[in-house]
Each structure stands twice: as structure tokens, then as C-alpha cells.
Design a protein around this nucleic acid. Structure first.
Length: 112
DNA sequence: AACATGACCATTA
DNA sequence: GTAATGGCCATGT
């Protein structure tokens, strides 16, 4: 099946984790790296997502991945990511997202 | 193979 | 609160 480009095993692992991020939640690059079994490879997560084409990106909710500061790391296209997040009810405080509230993880179990 | 770059992170000032 | 530094390591030249 040559429809999909040959992504490294590392990239595919990263994409697999990103696909598991619930709608309305966000995860940090470092968190994705850990869940993908690649602790410390936060930078590579960003690299992997950057390598996504629009076609591949359609399957991966890349917009749900932000940096540890709760901000968008993109230098370009950040407004698109923000728009997608806001469309999922993720709210911004200025330019940052409250990870304690929208972060994917323990806080996810909070009873609304 | 060496070098530079990058959608990062934690620490420090 | 922001800014700079060192560390991390895959990619492309």
C-alpha cells in the first residue's frame, strides 16, 4: 500500500499517540513523547508533526499538541491551530491554555 | 561523516 | 511575568 508515505517507526508511534488525544483536550510535546515510549524526545514530536502533510494531517489531530507552557509553538499557522482548538471548546487565557483544565491526563477525570 | 537547524523542556536569572 | 542557556536527538545539506 503505497498510499501512505514511509514514516519512521518513531513518527508513526507519535502519530498513534496524537490520534488518541480526546477532543477538547490538549497534550504537550513532552507528554506525547512519553506516551509514545520516547521520553525526552519532545523535540522530535514537534518535528514529526511538522512533517505531516495536509492529507496525513487530516487523520492526526495535530492541533491538540502544544508546548509545556500551554502556548502554541508554531511560528506560522498558529492562528489555524488556535481556531481549531477554540472550535473544540478549548479556551485561551490570553495566548495560553490552562493545562490543568484542558490538559489530557489526570485532570481529565474531573467531574465537570 | 560533520555541521546546522528545529511545531521542545527544565532551569536559571 | 519574560529572556537566555544547556540538553535532548532526528533530519537535511
Amino acid at each position: 500500500v503505497s498510499a501512505e508515505p514511509e514514516a519512521s517507526a518513531t513518527y508513526r508511534r507519535i502519530y498513534a499517540v496524537v490520534k488518541r488525544i480526546p477532543r477538547g483536550k490538549v497534550a504537550t510535546y513532552g507528554q506525547v513523547a512519553i506516551l509514545a515510549g520516547l521520553p525526552g524526545h519532545a523535540r522530535q514530536v514537534g518535528y514529526a508533526l511538522h512533517a505531516l502533510s495536509e492529507a496525513s494531517g487530516a487523520k492526526v489531530p495535530w492541533h491538540r499538541v502544544i508546548n509545556a507552557q500551554g502556548k502554541i509553538s508554531l511560528r506560522e499557522g498558529w492562528e489555524l491551530q488556535r481556531a481549531k482548538l477554540e472550535a473544540e471548546r478549548v479556551r485561551f487565557r490570553g495566548d495560553k491554555i490552562d493545562l490543568a483544565r484542558f490538559g489530557w491526563g489526570p485532570g481529565d477525570a474531573r467531574k465537570q
